[in-house]
């Protein structure tokens, strides 16, 4: 493998070609926050919290470090004022729909204001960790995305979930950064009610948990 040399936060770093900026930074002990990244899964590039500023030539731009490949001569800033501002706004946006869990922790670190945007609680931040874990690691595809734009959501496909989830005992739950999926596998739930729907929003998996969370915040 070819090596490339780049600068991250002023440090010169040599890594193999194809390494992502996130991997390169971590290898050099530089921490970048992430919400949709998991080493076991293919990068998704959806939360954009890992945004960093790169300069090659004169142009500076923002890229997602978890997907951007390292290249020779690249100058990367992981904590520039612009980057910090972007992360802060992203977290503030997420706090409007999902003010708990990792989002809350990171929000505290970045000093976000929790009421900048109008609340619309959905909890799921669509990081896709559960979906991708189920698909890539468990090869079960019991979860998926439906809809698009501001209506997009994550759902269980009950037909598959009834077969796969009991044996797996909800390993995906532990990946969820929001607290919407219960920490323990709720054995009683996967009956999906009497008339089995074709899709089942994640937040209804443990409706009581969801309502409790919502009540606590509102």
């Amino acid at each position: 493998m070819k090596k490339v040399s780049l600068t991250i936060d002023g440090k010169e770093i040599n890594v193999e070609e194809q390494t992502t900026l996130l991997q390169a930074a971590r290898a050099a002990g530089i921490q970048i926050p992430t919400l949709c990244h998991d080493d076991r899964l293919a990068p998704h590039g959806s939360c954009r919290l890992c945004s960093v500023e790169i300069t090659s030539g004169k142009k500076a731009r923002i890229v997602a470090s978890c997907v951007y490949p390292a290249a020779n001569g690249l100058v990367v800033e992981t904590k520039s004022p612009r980057v910090v501002k972007i992360r802060k706004v992203i977290l503030e946006l997420l706090q409007a729909s999902s003010p708990k869990g990792r989002v809350e922790e990171l929000g505290r670190i970045y000093g976000t204001s929790t009421d900048k945007f109008e609340k619309e609680l959905t909890f799921c931040i669509l990081c896709g960790l559960c979906v991708r874990y189920c698909s890539e690691v468990k090869k079960a595809d019991a979860l998926g995305f439906i809809g698009r734009g501001i209506e997009k959501q994550v759902v269980f496909f009950p037909e598959i979930a009834l077969k796969s989830c009991p044996a797996c005992e909800g390993q995906c739950f532990s990946l969820c950064p929001t607290g919407i999926l219960p920490n323990k596998f709720a054995r009683s739930v996967p009956s999906f009610g009497r008339s089995q729907p074709t899709v089942f929003p994640v937040r209804l998996w443990d409706e009581e948990n969801f309502l409790n969370l919502t009540r606590n915040i509102e």
Binding site: G45, S46, C47, R48, L49, I86, V89, I90, L93, L94, A96, S97, I125, L126, F145, G147, R148, G149, I150, E151, K152
Partner: peptide
């Protein structure tokens, strides 16, 4: 609806 800045 995939990425946070755009969707949210």
């Amino acid at each position: 609806g995939k990425c946070v800045p755009c969707r949210e």
